[in-house]
């Protein structure tokens, strides 16, 4: 366990060095949040149509949480892994007496947690405390629906972080296939941001897209925990959500390991 912890700490430290990038990202995220929440407010303010499944306040929570935890979504490969694979230095990691998958998993998890941790506190504080005082109560992030809602949110977010790390490792493994890496990364980024609910809150969708979104694992990264925060899903449904996450986590981790080992075998055959 100890070497994996060391890898976690080392990766976390490197993220801290990019504080300026984190600050800039925060600024961008707040701007995106503003735009998105105002667009949604306009939808809610429009006449007619079916009643929305979430209140505006719940939707605002959904948007701001999405911006706050954006860096935790598996929308890009871990740049450190990417460089490692491209430069061929992956060979050095193979020399360590550790399981490569879990080594990469811990490092990626550290990167995701620390870079979103750096950003989310400030964004949440802005959306939760500053906005109401700036006279934009309707747009602000409301407090969690209750202590148990907050607890459910926390547990599901922790699971989301694990899922995100496992997806990121799998995505990073595509870097072994240099000819298609950029394309796959681009597609994956688009899929993740839509089907996790970052583009349009998933509960507002209906028809076949809503059905597809419900089946895919990406909603467990953002949509599910966010709705527990605002009480849009009752606390009673938490065990089901947790099991949904657990099943996907197991599946993606197992699949990712197989995928990584396949890539490594190809690497050995190619002899580089």
């Amino acid at each position: 366990m100890r070497p994996y912890l060391a890898a976690f700490r080392a990766r976390a430290r490197t993220v801290f060095r990019y504080r300026a990038a984190a600050a800039a990202g925060m600024f961008a995220q707040v701007a995106f949040g503003f735009i998105l929440v105002m667009i949604l407010e306009s939808w809610y303010g429009s006449a007619g149509g079916a009643p929305a499944p979430m209140t505006m306040s719940q939707t605002a929570a959904y948007v701001w949480l999405g911006q706050a935890f954006f860096a935790m979504l598996p929308w890009n490969p871990d740049p450190e892994l990417r460089d490692l694979i491209r430069s061929g230095e992956v060979a050095r990691d193979l020399l360590r007496p550790l399981d490569l998958y879990w080594l990469w998993f811990t490092r990626t998890l550290a990167w995701r947690l620390v870079s979103s941790g750096l950003r989310c506190a400030a964004i949440l504080a802005f959306a939760g405390f500053a906005l109401p005082r700036l006279g934009m109560v309707d747009l602000a992030l409301p407090a969690p629906a209750g202590a148990s809602a907050l607890a459910c949110f926390a547990v599901l977010m922790a699971m989301a972080a694990l899922m995100s790390a496992s997806m990121t490792v799998a995505l990073s493994c595509f870097q072994f296939r240099q000819v298609s890496a950029a394309g796959i990364t681009a597609i994956f980024a688009a899929i993740v941001s839509f089907f996790s609910g970052l583009t349009v809150p998933l509960p507002l969708l209906d028809g076949p897209i809503a059905a597809v979104a419900g089946l895919l694992p990406f909603r467990a990264l953002a949509d599910l925990p966010f709705r527990f925060w605002s009480g849009a899903i009752p606390v009673n449904d938490a065990p089901a959500a947790f099991l949904f996450q657990l099943a996907w986590l197991a599946a993606i981790t197992a699949g990712g390991r197989v995928f990584l080992n396949m890539q490594l075998r190809d690497l050995a055959v190619a002899g580089s």
Partner: peptide, 18 residues
């Protein structure tokens, strides 16, 4: 898919600020 998302919002809310 994204455009379909927009269509879904229109079918739910009817119009966008007129």
């Amino acid at each position: 898919v994204e455009f379909a998302g927009m269509l879904a919002l229109f079918s739910r809310f009817g119009e966008f600020r007129g």
